[in-house]
Design a protein around this nucleic acid. Structure first.
Lengths: 253, 253
DNA sequence: CGATAATTTGATCCAGTTCAAGCGACGTGG
DNA sequence: CCACGTCGCTTGAACTGGATCAAATTATCG
């Protein structure tokens, strides 16, 4: 499971903090499970490994990676505290998971996890709902990848990664490398770099550290990322189309 | 719900045939539900409509569409017999669904559907499994969109649409328009056209009708689409990487 | 049979890739 | 404490796949 949607307390790259258990009901399943720590850059599991475990990210960040036959690398998601890793109905994991930062995970035997899910209707609901959310997120990602310019991609990525607010501004932790971002957004490292530089140049954001940027003009960034789910625009647009086609519509059933 | 994965009996654009109930357990839920027919090009529901119903495609094909604020259109999936349409945990549908061909759908009140799912563990399993499959499919699609060339995109699209076999060859029904394909694969109608023409020119496929193509060289098409899940390549590749990093791996927990 | 929409084909153009070269931070060993 | 290599990132310059613009051609349907 991946494609984080929830906005949770960001993880500090160096210190270890507790995950916000209260927000994710599913976390309660993991509360007493063994804790595993992985150093930055290490592997949690490999694509193709027998899928015997499910994890919950407690703190830190992991990336889920898929490889194409020609060596091209795709990051299917960055997972943060509260996200589940490895939930699937396949025998094998369909992606490799690596620690981006030092990370703490709670491990759950997949078998037990499935039993618990079957036993607890409330948990089931939560998991189901989470799957649906991720489904939508994956589609959003597909839209992003297929139809958006470099500027739009980066802008919406930054907005999704934005978590902490200081005063007027948003601080964005980017513990992953530029290559990771590129592989996530379907662009090259050079374009990622050029685009961030451009944004910084036009005063939209400031780069303190390469891994910590501050959004100075949230509005501008939003208007660049524009259209993501721009409902105030879409609603009237749909209404118009609906009008146009309502007569053509034949509901035979 | 979308991104069809299962390979099912293809739908003929003009005749009405029964869906293969035996293959999808979930279909049994819909067996006695009211049947609705929609003419080609008509709307089943709109993005933003209150999500009160769930459908199962019985025969024909529908497309799930999302609109971006600037009018760009994305097709998130083509749905065929056995596929469920509109399953979600949102109040509103997140995409518009249109009939590509004349289509028959079984309608289910969402409320009842959810009750049934809650009541029948077997159905729940099936639905869950289906969601997971679609999750993976959506990710595959994201990979396709972000990292593949026009040739690769079209080749793998054709392979996924291929269903019926006649002799050595595969017949592919493409009831949707070129624009639909373009919007699904994240390319322009011109590129879709040029690429199909090129494939036809190099003897990989033959175009009978614009909407019915025959794959003449499955192998060539596969090697163009290559890499999709090319495990015979990936497995050794992963093994090598694993070797390289196994010593660096620190499992602290 | 003519009108209209869908598709193909042709000719440019450009965003983003590719190739190539600096740059700064960090760690290591002398 | 500093030279030196490495790594991740930025910057520059040329190149290209696919987009865009513009017809021509071919269904499709009254």
């Amino acid at each position: 499971m991946n494609m984080p949607r929830r906005l949770v307390q960001p993880t500090n790259q160096t210190s270890i903090e507790d995950a916000p258990f209260s927000t994710t009901g599913l976390s309660s399943l993991f509360r007493h499970q063994p804790l595993e720590r992985f150093a930055a850059g290490t592997i949690v599991f490999w694509e193709g490994d027998k899928a015997t475990k499910v994890f919950e990210v407690v703190c830190g960040m992991v990336r889920a990676i898929r490889l194409l036959s020609d060596g091209r690398r795709i990051i299917v998601g960055f997972l943060r505290p509260g996200d589940l890793v490895g939930v699937s109905f396949k025998d094998q994991y369909v992606y490799t998971v690596e620690a981006v930062t030092k990370v703490e995970l709670r491990r759950f035997s997949r078998h037990l996890f499935e039993l618990e899910i079957a036993r607890q209707p409330a948990m089931r609901e939560l998991l189901f709902s989470k799957l649906c959310d991720e489904m939508t997120a994956a589609q959003d990602q597909a839209v992003l990848l297929s139809r958006r310019s470099a500027d739009e991609k980066l802008a919406s990525f930054l907005l999704r990664m934005a978590t902490r607010r200081i005063g007027q501004h948003m601080v964005v932790d980017l513990p992953m490398t530029r290559q990771d971002i590129a592989d996530y957004l379907g662009m090259t490292i050079e374009t990622v770099s050029r685009t961030t530089t451009k944004f910084a140049g036009s005063g939209i954001l400031a780069m303190t550290d390469r891994h910590i940027i501050t959004i100075l003009s949230m509005d501008e960034l939003r208007s660049i990322a524009e259209g993501e789910e721009c409902n105030h625009w879409i609603a009237p647009c749909l209404a118009k189309m609906r009008q146009q086609t309502s007569d053509a519509r034949q509901l035979i059933g």
